[in-house]
Write a protein that binds this DNA or RNA. Structure first.
Length: 292
DNA sequence: ATATTCCCCTGGAAGC
DNA sequence: TGCTTCCAGGGGAATA
C-alpha cells in the first residue's frame, strides 16, 4: 500500500501524538508480522523512555526514544495506524496496541501482515539502524542526481521501471509512482537503464520529485485501503494519470492513445504508448555528432 | 554479480 | 447465490 507520499503523510500525522510521550504498556496480538513478534520485543522502551523524534526514511517510520532505541516500522501493503481514546476496543487485524503516557492508544493494523516492527539500537554516535543502511538515497536528497543514476545504470540492463522499484537505487518509490513518474518524464518503462542518456535521467529525477511532492501535498493516494492516522483518505488517486487507468484515453496527449498495462517483474506497469514511445527517438544531428 | 520468480497473507472484485 | 480465480501501494529469499 504505502509508498513515500503515504508513509510521509502517516509520519506527519503520527508525530504530534508521539513526541514527548512515552509508552506505558503494550499488548501484542500476533505471533509475527514479517518477523517474529512478542511483548518482550518492546521491553527497552516501556515505562520511561520518551519519544524525541518521529521521522521517515524511505518507506520506514522511525520512532526514536531518548535512550538510543528506536522503533522501525514498515506498513507493508496493507498496514495502518490509528490513535484512539483510552479504553477503545481492538478491531480485526489490530496486531499491536501501544498505551501512551497521555492515555491514548496507538493501534497498528495490518490485514495482510506484510508489515514489520523492529526495535533498533543506535550506535554510540547515533548512527542509523543497521536495517536501513543499504537503502539508496531519498528522492529529495541532494545526492540523488542524474550523474549518480548514470553511474548506477551503466551496468544495468534491466528496464528502468524495475530499477525505480529497487530500494537500493533510490528509496521510497513504489509501483504507483514509478509508472506515474515515467509517464511524466515521457520515458518508456521498458527502456534498458544503460540506454538512458544523462539528459533523460535529469528529466526523470525532476518528474519523480514532482509527482512525489504533489502526492505528499494531497496526503497520498487511496486506491483501496490506505488511510492515514485519523482514518481519512489520500486525495491523489484522482490525479493519477496512468496507474489503474488502462483502456482509458491518455489525459496528457488528449486521447491520441489509450493507456496500456503490461507486467514487469511480476508487477503491473501502466503507460501511454504515444507519450512514452518504446523505440528510441532518433534525433537528427550533424553527421559526425554523437548520439546518446 | 544481476535480474527475475516465488512466497509471505487477507480481502475484495470479477468470472463462472 | 455461491464458489473459484485473480489481483493488490512491499520486500526478502530462492533461483536462473
Amino acid at each position: 500500500m504505502p509508498e513515500l507520499p503515504e508513509v510521509e503523510t502517516v509520519c506527519r500525522a503520527l508525530r504530534p501524538h508521539l513526541l514527548e510521550r512515552s509508552i506505558g504498556d503494550v499488548t501484542v496480538h500476533a505471533a509475527r508480522l514479517r518477523g517474529p513478534l512478542g511483548r518482550e520485543l518492546f521491553a527497552d522502551i516501556l515505562g520511561g523512555p520518551t519519544v524525541v523524534d518521529v521521522r521517515r526514511r524511505a518507506k520506514y517510520i522511525i520512532v526514536e526514544f531518548d535512550n538510543l532505541r528506536a522503533l522501525v516500522l514498515h506498513l507493508g501493503m496493507s498496514g495502518s495506524f490509528r490513535l484512539c481514546p483510552a479504553g477503545s476496543g481492538r478491531q480485526r487485524h489490530d496486531h499491536i496496541v501501544w498505551f501512551l503516557s497521555d492515555g491514548h492508544q496507538w493501534h497498528m493494523n495490518d490485514p495482510r501482515r506484510f508489515g514489520s516492527v523492529e526495535l533498533c539500537q543506535f550506535d554510540c554516535r547515533g548512527g542509523i539502524p543497521e536495517r536501513l543502511q543499504k537503502l539508496g538515497p531519498d528522492p529529495f536528497d541532494a545526492m540523488f542526481t542524474a550523474a549518480l543514476l548514470l553511474q548506477m545504470f551503466r551496468s544495468r540492463s534491466q528496464p528502468v521501471k524495475n530499477a525505480l522499484l529497487d530500494q537500493t537505487v533510490v528509496s521510497g518509490i513504489g509501483n504507483i509512482y514509478a509508472s506515474e513518474a515515467l509517464h511524466l518524464a515521457e520515458i518508456a518503462p521498458d527502456s534498458p537503464c544503460s540506454a538512458l542518456p544523462l539528459k533523460t535521467l535529469e528529466t526523470l529525477i525532476v518528474a519523480v520529485r514532482n509527482v512525489l511532492a504533489s502526492a505528499v501535498e494531497c496526503g497520498g493516494s487511496t486506491i483501496r485501503s490506505y488511510r492515514t492516522v485519523d482514518g481519512s483518505e489520500g486525495k491523489f488517486a484522482q490525479r493519477l494519470l496512468v496507474y489503474g487507468r488502462d483502456g482509458e484515453p491518455c489525459a496528457r496527449c488528449g486521447g491520441d492513445a489509450e493507456i496500456q498495462k503490461m507486467v514487469q517483474a511480476g508487477r503491473s506497469t501502466f503507460f501511454c504508448p504515444a507519450c512514452q514511445p518504446r523505440e528510441r527517438r532518433t534525433i537528427k544531428r550533424h553527421p559526425h555528432g554523437k548520439n546518446a
